[in-house]
């Protein structure tokens, strides 16, 4: 059974008098531990797709089974609970809270966990520190966003997405606001999490270089899946990678599991 099973998904928005068909029957399976990129020009429905996969929105019709649970007809409060413990979001604009230390940012999702998944207070800090260590921000836990670089901010955001042990890490243009060097560093973190911890990554982007890191690229056009590219094993895309400018020395670090090494580098 796949982690994500999407069947005949449609989404229709009512824009005044006009009906906008954002998605027109999309079917898609994503396996546990897969890295999928969703691409497409603006208006292709990729944002809508991300909102539905991320349980921020429900489809007009079709089914979406996440981790064995049908989430396509859930109400707001149920969706919030699913987002809380199954989905980790990373946004283009980081969306960190102003004037809040990194550690508090990362502790935030645990504050909203309910009953069964409630994390005891004492454990929250521990887990947040752990998550920050994984993204190489262990020495910056008391820094506020204004004291961090763009790349560092995005890594805090990744730690925040990670802290609840979600089934999927959803990233929306995660490097869109970053310079190329920071972008590479952030992508490395995704690689480490994906390869080291087997985390499922769903990334929405229009950047070919970014999508090249994914194992599968779903190309949307006019609300339909136009094409699916398989990038195959990592070794086979090595050459593609160097084209987009990842230095060989950094490449060798990709997939490093130990957080120690990660924090050294950062």
């Amino acid at each position: 059974m796949s982690l994500i099973e999407i069947r005949d998904l449609t989404k229709v928005y009512q824009m005044g008098e006009v009906e906008v068909h954002a998605l027109n029957g999309v079917s898609l399976d994503i396996d546990q531990g897969e890295w999928v990129a969703i691409m497409g020009p603006s208006g292709s429905g990729k944002s809508t797709m991300m909102h539905i996969i991320g349980c921020l929105d429900i489809p007009t019709s079709g089914s979406y089974i996440l981790d064995g649970v049908d989430v396509s007809q859930m109400v707001e409060s149920q969706l919030a609970a699913v987002r809380n413990h199954k989905i980790g979001f990373v946004f283009q604009a980081y969306n960190l809270l102003a004037r809040t230390s990194a550690i508090k940012q990362v502790m935030l999702p645990m504050q909203y966990s309910r009953d069964g998944s409630r994390v005891p207070r004492a454990e929250r800090r521990e887990r947040a520190e752990e998550a920050l260590e994984v993204v190489g921000m262990a020495d910056r836990i008391n820094h506020r966003p204004s004291e961090l670089s763009g790349g560092e901010r995005q890594r805090v955001a990744i730690a925040r997405a990670l802290v609840t042990n979600p089934s999927i890490l959803m990233a929306d243009e995660p490097t869109g606001n970053l310079d190329s060097k920071s972008g590479i560093e952030v992508m490395e973190v995704f690689h480490r999490l994906h390869e080291g911890r087997g985390i499922t990554v769903v990334m929405v982007t229009h950047d070919e270089a970014i999508s090249a890191d994914a194992e599968r690229v779903i190309r949307l056009f006019d609300g339909r899946i136009e094409r699916v590219d398989r990038n195959g094993l990592r070794s086979e895309v090595e050459s593609q990678k160097s084209k987009v400018g990842i230095p060989a020395q950094l490449m060798s670090d990709v997939g490093v599991v130990t957080p120690d090494k990660g924090s050294e580098r950062c």
């Binding site: 991320g54 409060s77 987002r83 999702p109 909203y112 925040r160 997405a161 609840t164």
Partner: peptide
């Protein structure tokens, strides 16, 4: 508004 959006995205309920 964005903060509220983020809080909701990471699982905050309406009541929260």
């Amino acid at each position: 508004t964005r903060e509220i959006g983020l809080r909701k995205a990471i699982g905050a309920q309406r009541s929260d």
